[in-house]
Every structure is written in structure tokens, then in C-alpha cells.
């Protein structure tokens, strides 16, 4: 069991690390393509396209890590007004709703991914890019997000602090 958890944690942090590298890549790709252009060269089209696709990969691969970090902004209005015992219940209930949403999106994300393979869909920009390479992020990201949210349903740590305000 411990090995499974360790492997899972490694997956989560590897995904976040790739997201961080992608952010740096955004800078590099823009700088290189502007420099090439101004030196009179033709910038590689993949510099531009990789930045566009990079935003999706970055967001999807990093989102589960941000759940663990409690970085997805939420508003404490109801949870701040409730007595502690009820607040714990509402907090776990909201986390359970989030698990439910993520499971739905992971499931239909998987359907979309399979449809894209079956239909042989391409995204047409500078290149014909197989669309499943984009949509494969959905089942992965939302499954891991569902696991992360379920930690706030069953674990000792709660998503909500009970202090009024917008929280990360």
C-alpha cells in the first residue's frame, strides 16, 4: 500500500513539475521565435503551436497538485457562518461534490479521448496534430483531481478553514 501511495505521489509531483517546465517553455518559445523573426529567419512554426498547446498541458497537469496545495480559490461564506461540527460536515460534502464533478469529467473525458482516436480527429493549425494527444489529459487530470479532493472528504485535513473570505 505504501508503495502505491509513493508511486501516486511521484505521479502527482511529476505532473506538476512538467507544468512548471511548460511555464518556462512559454517564455523560451516566445523569445526564440521573436529573435529568429528579427534576425530575418523563419521561426519554427512549432514554437508558436507548442506555446498554445502548452497552456492546456500546463493547466491540466498542474491542476491536481493545486488541489493538494488548496490553491483553487473558493469563497467562505456559508462555511464561515456555521458552528464547527456542521462546518466539518458541509466542508466534506462540498469536497464530495468536487469528487463527483471530477469523476464525471474524467469519465466523459475518457469517452472524448476514445472518440478522438476512433474518429482519427486532428486539430488543424500549423500542423495536423492528433486531438487525442490533447484530450488524453482530461481522464488523467480529472481522475487525479478526484483522488485529491477525496482526501478532503475522508482525510483529517479539511478544505475549508471556517474563516470568512476568498481562500486559496
Amino acid at each position: 500500500m505504501r508503495a502505491v501511495i509513493r508511486a501516486y505521489d511521484a505521479l502527482l509531483y511529476t505532473m506538476a513539475f512538467i507544468a512548471a517546465l511548460t511555464l518556462v517553455w512559454l517564455m523560451v518559445s516566445v523569445v526564440v521565435s521573436v529573435l529568429m523573426r528579427n534576425l530575418g529567419m523563419q521561426p519554427f512554426a512549432w514554437l508558436f503551436t507548442s506555446a498554445e498547446y502548452g497552456i492546456l498541458y500546463m493547466t491540466m497537469l498542474g491542476a491536481p497538485w493545486l488541489v493538494r496545495e488548496k490553491g483553487h480559490v473558493h469563497i467562505e461564506l456559508v462555511t464561515a457562518a456555521l458552528p464547527p461540527s456542521l462546518r466539518r460536515f458541509v466542508s466534506r460534502f462540498v469536497a464530495a461534490l468536487c469528487v463527483f464533478v471530477c469523476v464525471i469529467l474524467a469519465w466523459y473525458g475518457l469517452q472524448l479521448f476514445l472518440t478522438n482516436i476512433e474518429r482519427n480527429n486532428f486539430d488543424v493549425r500549423a500542423y495536423y496534430y492528433p486531438r487525442w494527444l490533447l484530450t488524453v489529459t482530461f481522464p488523467i487530470a480529472f481522475s487525479v483531481m478526484a483522488i485529491e479532493f477525496s482526501r478532503f472528504v475522508f482525510g483529517s485535513d479539511l478544505m475549508h478553514s471556517g474563516e470568512a473570505g476568498i481562500h486559496e
Partner: peptide, 29 residues
């Protein structure tokens, strides 16, 4: 129904693969 949820996800990647979003992370950086 179900196809609506698939469309939602289809929209999602469309909305997140546009160059206009590139500046924000870089300004933050």
C-alpha cells in the same frame, strides 16, 4: 445530456489553447 458534457470538455481545450493566454503566466513570472 451526455453529449453536452463531452461538448463542455471539447470547449475547454479550445478555450485553453489560444496564444492570447500566453502573456498572463509570463507577467506573473
Amino acid at each position: 445530456g451526455e453529449r453536452g458534457v463531452v461538448a463542455l470538455l471539447n470547449n475547454g481545450w479550445g478555450a485553453l489553447t489560444i496564444f492570447a493566454l500566453v502573456p498572463i503566466p509570463l507577467f506573473l513570472l
